[in-house]
Design a protein around this nucleic acid. Structure first.
Length: 901
RNA sequence: GCGGAGAUUGCCGAGCUAGGAAAAGGCGAUGGAUUUAGGGUCCAUUUCCGCAGGGAUUCGGGGGUUCAAAUCCCCCUCUCCGCACCA
């Protein structure tokens, strides 16, 4: 199908408002959504799966007679667009390269620099890609109602987000608290994955250390540890002889730690004061008391201590730390080594040192440490640890940590899981945000409501219902606002921007009445809560509004009442633990009854040529490129039949080729069509029945969203049937003519362009995209005729099997079909009214019993009707005989006797 | 580690929910047909054995339940995904 045809229909659909539905109380509505795309770049073949599935379902529901709303908007919230724009402003080479590659799909080379220049303003990136994505989606033939489109940066929409947050607040779901974040000291800003060097490939996260306080005469030492449960095994403390240590004041007490540690600590606690530097000798000359345990230990220099990890002070547990143990042995330190954790295995410090030969080869040091920690964490029991003895390591760790914190013997110290710098080269640490806003998803009433909702929804495939329920249980508080990024200002505190996933949980409501809300906002410059309460929650208006506003309010409410409930939302698995959970929980919190989500479809991931799609693998294939190269219908066909919805779909040339072949076969059958036949044969009746059997299977499968199976029936099987008619020597045009009308409608959800073109050429001058398909087709299927054809092919295959085994060439085939004798025998045998003279048939009957067909087809007639076909297929003559005697070896229904001469 | 999904033929993948002659469909391979240059299209074959439509063996490994197990139950091995503030 050439691009001109696609363009033509795309334009005509748009001009004729084919996909812009209006309220019609007489018709049942169906409201389907897919997540709005994020507009920081162009889309690749993987992105297209969800959107295409959405369109296929929208189109299918339309042909089933539903009033279908399939809208689309754009997500512009969050930091990535901002970050990309900033990098362009900084002339970052990789970012420029990336955006040039996006632009090269759409623009002439000479225009690119001008556009790139504009991208230094973030909103231009968002606007630009929203525009090209619309173009991509139109090219793909999506039946989207673009008149209801909006973005998360639109002012009127942000009124809804604010309303939503005030609702959450009134429900007691908003909270404030402390929260650790990744932070750049130089930039004085929170940093995300995008801001960190190699942040996407080597993830940085936050680790919680226990900063244990060792009391001394003049000041305390703070040693940050991940394993507070080993406290009773402490033999000494370590500091680095080369590092700078400082004395700090905090909460009426004095502490010593490395300078780097102090910097981090000061971002995690309030009112931390740097007093002075402290000489290493001063520290080394003192003893410090181990909390809880109570003994005093000395401080020893150790070069392996990293001043930029934790506090730069480490407590030494040679019994359970391989680093400490090796340093003990290498430096001949005589302190007693104490064991405080017991496991049943041989995995302990000494054995691991031997196993990996760590004294001579420290390359495996980290690995061995991991192995030890894992073993002790999961299987360890505390010993020699005072009142904590006999507790499991997991219990003891929590308990000791809490006991230490309670008496100010420890403070929480956060550290990054690896050393990280931003793209601009400044250091990334963990800072504590005061007054972080959270949405509290941990509340029981909300979890219960959400589970109820999930259990009332439809899931495709079913397995995601459990995944969804689990995700809801696992969710706790979620930070819901950030200090920067594109988005809506938090209504209670304008210094905060609502976080980008939290501003997109109920946005589908605005698809129903986008234009009216837009009007109201433009007219009033805001949208009061009482208006939105009225429209969305059916509450009474509190204020008086002018006629224009009232008109829009009434219309907006009608639209919402008619369309809402999002009947089906389609996404990918990575959304389960975030977007979909928020979607469900926010709806459960705010809405009820028919306005709650109706169903969820989760489609598997798309890979490309066997590998995960990523820039580094070089297998990113742009959606636009694909459509240009192949065609929208080919892409859509691949999405529909390439894999089951739940399984992963591999985009590759080989599978694509076979789909292209099938599609061009389909097109050429139509191309060669002419209405020229008055031929009559039972094969046409068979084809007709078989077609409606396939259509019936199509309906069954589409109703349960098994799109692949549905299209194997209606596309592949029907094509094969047509070929079969042709191979049998009959007229393919006559067969095609009988089903063309219904076939094109049924295929149109997946191949809208081809079907639209063929429909206009051969059927009539209306839009196939708006045609309905009759669901009641049972009376069009003649099962007897389908069985006849099955019978025929079974006989043929039996004959072939025999021919294969016998080595001599036969000339004539005698086919003896069952007669009245056999029929009567079966009936009488079942009724136990068998006469004596038939007894000799019993043995033969029993032997073949489970292969006998109990539909008594007129086999004599069928074989005679198809005599020519059989003879031609086998290149042999056949004799057909109807049996009328009692035999030792009988023909039975479905199993004629075959004798080759 | 926890939670989830999975292992079927040369390969990709159905079948498993409701147990009843395993191998749908596709790709690849083989043979044949076709005035097919080649790619194309069609027919057949593609676990093994078989000179009559038959038989045997198979669904990651090992047990069990059952007249009957790819399917239900238990154990083991291996693979993939998620584990949080990021769209």
């Amino acid at each position: 199908m050439d691009n001109n045809i696609e363009e033509k229909w795309s334009k005509l659909w748009y001009e004729n408002h084919v996909f812009e539905p209006e309220i019609d109380e007489g018709i049942e509505k169906f409201f389907v959504t897919v997540p709005w795309p994020y507009t920081n770049g162009s889309l690749h073949v993987g992105h297209g799966r969800t959107y295409t599935l959405g369109d296929i379902i929208a189109r299918y529901k339309r042909l089933r007679g539903y009033n279908v709303l399939f809208p689309m908007g754009f997500h512009e919230s969050g930091t990535p667009i901002l970050a990309f724009s900033e990098r362009l402003r900084n002339n970052d080479i990789n970012t420029i390269k990336l955006y040039k590659s996006y632009l090269s799909e759409y623009e002439k080379p000479e225009d690119m620099d001008i556009i790139l220049e504009k991208f230094k303003e973030p909103e231009n990136i968002a606007d630009y890609f929203a525009r090209v994505i619309i173009k991509d989606f139109k090219n793909l033939g999506y039946s989207i109602d673009w008149t209801r489109s909006f973005t998360s940066a639109d002012k009127f929409y942000q009124e809804i987000v604010k309303w939503q947050f005030r609702k959450l607040e009134s429900l007691g779901l908003l909270k404030k608290g402390e929260y650790p974040i990744l932070y750049s000291i130089n930039d004085e800003n929170a940093v995300g994955e995008d801001d960190i060097k190699d942040g996407d490939t080597d993830k940085v996260s936050i680790e919680e250390f226990t900063g244990v306080v060792f009391k001394g005469k003049n000041y305390n030492l703070m040693a940050a540890s991940l394993r507070p449960e080993t406290l009773y095994g402490v033999t000494n403390l370590w500091i680095n002889p080369e590092a700078r240590y400082v004395l700090i004041g905090y909460k009426n007490d004095k502490y010593v730690m490395s300078y780097e540690g102090y910097l981090k600590f000061s971002f995690q606690h309030e009112n931390v004061k740097l007093i002075s530097d402290v000489s290493n000798n001063d520290i080394l000359n003192q003893k410090f008391k181990v909390p809880l345990y109570g003994i005093c230990v000395s401080v020893i220099s150790a070069s392996f201590v990293d001043p930029d990890n934790g506090t730069g002070v480490v407590y030494s547990v040679p019994g359970h730390s391989i680093f400490d143990y090796i340093y003990f042995k290498n430096n001949n330190i005589k302190n007693e080594i104490k064991n405080v954790v017991k496991t049943n295995s041989d995995t302990n410090v000494e054995n691991l040192v031997k196993k990996y030969d760590l004294f001579n080869n420290d390359s495996k040091l980290k690995e061995a440490t991991q192995e030890l920690y894992k073993e002790e964490f999961y299987n360890g029991i505390l010993i020699n640890s005072g009142k904590y003895s006999n507790l499991s390591v997991q219990e003891a760790r929590e308990l000791i940590k809490n006991d230490l914190l309670k008496d100010n013997n420890a403070m929480i110290f956060y550290e990054t899981t690896r050393k990280a710098i931003t793209r601009s080269g400044s250091k990334v640490i963990v800072a504590i945000l005061k007054d972080q806003w959270f949405i509290d998803y941990s509340q029981k009433w909300l979890k219960e409501k959400s589970h109820d909702l999930i259990n009332s929804m439809k899931f495709y495939p079913e397995l995601y219902r459990k995944a969804m329920n689990d995700a809801i249980d696992w969710l706790r508080e979620r930070p819901a606002a950030r200090k920067r990024g594109i988005g809506t200002k938090l209504p209670f505190d304008e210094n905060w921007i609502i976080e980008s996933l939290s501003d997109s949980t109920i946005y589908m409501v605005a698809y129903t009445n986008r234009n009216e809300l837009y009007n109201i906002y433009n007219h009033l410059n805001n949208i009061n809560d009482d208006i939105l309460d009225h429209i969305f929650l059916n509450k009474n208006l509190k204020n008086k509004y002018d006629d224009y506003t009232m008109e829009n309010i009434v219309k907006a409410k009608n639209e919402f009442d008619y369309w809402y409930g999002n009947d089906l939302r389609i996404t990918a698995p990575p959304h389960i633990s975030n977007h979909l959970s928020f979607y469900i929980m926010n709806h459960a919190a705010i809405f009820s009854g028919k306005y709650l989500p109706g169903g969820l479809m989760v489609s598997g991931l798309v890979i490309s040529n066997g590998a995960k799609i990523s820039k580094s693998k070089g297998n990113v294939i742009s959606l636009l490129e694909t459509v240009k190269k192949y065609s929208a219908d080919i892409y859509r066909l691949f999405i529909a039949v390439g894999a089951d919805i739940s399984s992963l779909l591999d985009w590759n040339e080989k599978d694509l080729t076979s789909i292209i072949k099938k599609q061009s076969m389909f097109l050429s059958i139509f191309e060669n069509y002419s209405d020229n036949s008055d031929d009559n044969n039972y094969i046409y009746k068979w084809f007709y029945s078989s077609f409606y059997k396939n259509l019936k299977d199509y309906f069954t499968n589409m109703e349960s969203m098994d799109i692949r199976d549905a299209y194997i029936s209606i596309f592949y099987n029907v094509l094969n049937d047509l070929k079969y008619v042709e191979n049998r020597g009959f007229n393919i045009n006559k067969a095609l003519k009988m089903v063309m009308h219904d076939w094109l409608i049924a295929l149109s959800p997946v191949m809208p362009y081809s079907c639209e073109e063929l429909w206009h050429k051969y059927v009539k001058d209306s839009f196939v995209s708006k045609e309905y398909l009759d669901f009641n087709i049972d009376d069009k299927i003649d099962y007897n005729i389908l069985r006849s054809e099955e019978y025929l092919s079974r006989v043929l295959s039996d004959i072939r099997e025999i021919l294969k085994i016998i080595k001599y060439p036969g000339k004539i085939i005698n086919l003896t079909v069952y007669g009245d004798i056999q029929k009567n025998f079966i009936e009488n045998f079942n009724n136990k009214t068998l006469k004596k003279e038939y007894n000799m048939m019993i043995k033969d009957y029993m032997k073949n019993k489970n292969r006998i067909d109990n539909n008594f087809l007129d086999e004599y007639y069928i074989l005679n009707e198809n005599r020519e076909f059989i003879e031609k297929s086998l290149n042999m003559k056949i004799n057909i005989i109807q049996c009328n005697e009692i035999l030792l070896k009988n023909p039975w229904p479905g199993r004629p006797l075959i004798k080759i001469e």
